[in-house]
Each structure stands twice: as C-alpha cells, then as structure tokens.
C-alpha cells in the first residue's frame, strides 16, 4: 500500500481543494433554490471538489477535505447543527463513491459515481431529518431522488471536465 507522507506540497494541495469546497459551499448558500420542486434539496456544489480530490489525490485526502469542509462550512454558516446532517451524509456518500471508483471504474463512469453519491447524500440527510423529527419523511423521497439525479449529473460533468483538463502538475508527485 502506498505510504502517504505529510509534505508541504500535499498540505498545499489539500488547502487549495478545501478552499475550493468552502467557496462552493458559500456560493451555494447565496444562490436561490435551483431545485424548487424539492424543498431543502441543493445541488451540492462542494461535492464536486470532494469527488475531484477522491479521483486525483485518493480517499484519505478526500476524507480530510470533507472533514475540513463540514467543520468550517458549519462555522461560516453560523449553524453547528448542520454538522448532524453534513457529517454522516458526507461520510457515507464518500464511502459509496470510493467503493464504486475503486472496484467498478472504468466500467461505471464518473457521472454514475457522482449520481450515486448525490442520491446517497440526500437519502442519508432525509433519514437523519426523519430521526430528529421522529417522523418518517418518506413522502419527500421521490422528489429528493429526482433532485439528486439532476445534481449528480451536473456534478459528474463538472468533475469529469475538471479532471480532463487539469494540468498534471496539480496532482502528480514531484
């Protein structure tokens, strides 16, 4: 197994991708609801940065960026309660995407992996909301799935073209 050393270059890369994820989080908070038919559902722009890190730098780095994005995103939004939703949903979604990318890629492409990640993310958030409210929110699930499909397609395309045109110097070893 490849040993991951903490180098200046690695820390810089992680900082750049974390900053990208946070900027996308803030941009998304300023945008009006794009998926108006599914209340509460978001495109999930920061997931593009996390999936890009998973592909370019690996699962450990993706986990670090996810943790930093969840913590700092909740602090910037002034709502620590967001962590109850974002941490489990992000972890499970990243895990599913990692397994698909590790074992099924290239039979299944980045867009399908992103789609599965978006569906998992929204479904887990819905499950957590159901647990917190003590009420089943199953009625919202189909709308959530449609929103996730649109979001997953969008993010999948974004990550595909990011990886395709990103210079090798950004992610290759020195």
């Amino acid at each position: 197994m490849e040993q991951k050393r903490i180098t200046t270059k690695r820390i810089t890369r992680l900082a750049v991708f974390t900053a990208a994820a946070l900027i996308l989080t803030l941009v998304e908070n300023f945008l009006p609801p794009l998926l108006v038919f599914a209340p509460g559902a978001k495109i999930g722009l920061p997931n593009a940065a996390i999936l890009a890190v998973l592909v370019l730098l690996g699962p450990v780095d993706a986990l670090i960026v996810l943790a930093a994005k969840c913590l700092l995103g909740a602090l910037f939004a002034g709502s620590p309660a967001m962590l109850m939703y974002s941490v489990p949903a992000g972890l499970i979604s990243l895990g599913v995407q990692y397994l698909l990318y590790r074992f099924t890629f290239p039979k299944i492409g980045l867009i399908s992996i992103s789609l599965t990640g978006a569906i998992t993310h929204n479904a887990v958030q819905l499950l957590i909301a159901s647990l917190i409210l003590g009420q089943s929110l199953f009625y919202v699930l189909p709308l959530t799935l449609i929103a996730s499909t649109i979001a997953g397609l969008f993010i999948g395309f974004a990550v595909f073209y990011t990886v395709k045109y990103l210079p090798r110097s950004v992610y290759e070893k020195v």
């Binding site: 370019l56 290239p106 039979k107 492409g109 980045l110 399908s112 789609l115 073209y161 395709k164």
Partner: peptide
C-alpha cells in the same frame, strides 16, 4: 490511480454502462 486518471483524460463523459445505469435509475 494514474491509469484511471488517464482513462478519464482520454475518454468520454458517458459510457454505455452509464446510460443503462441512468435508465434503471
């Protein structure tokens, strides 16, 4: 990992399996 990234750089966004996956979904 490098081969996977190369396959993305040279490939197309949609593969046949993706279309089946989307249709099923």
């Amino acid at each position: 990992k490098s081969e996977k990234i190369e396959s993305i750089k040279k490939g197309k966004p949609f593969r046949l399996t993706d279309i089946f996956f989307l249709a099923g979904l």
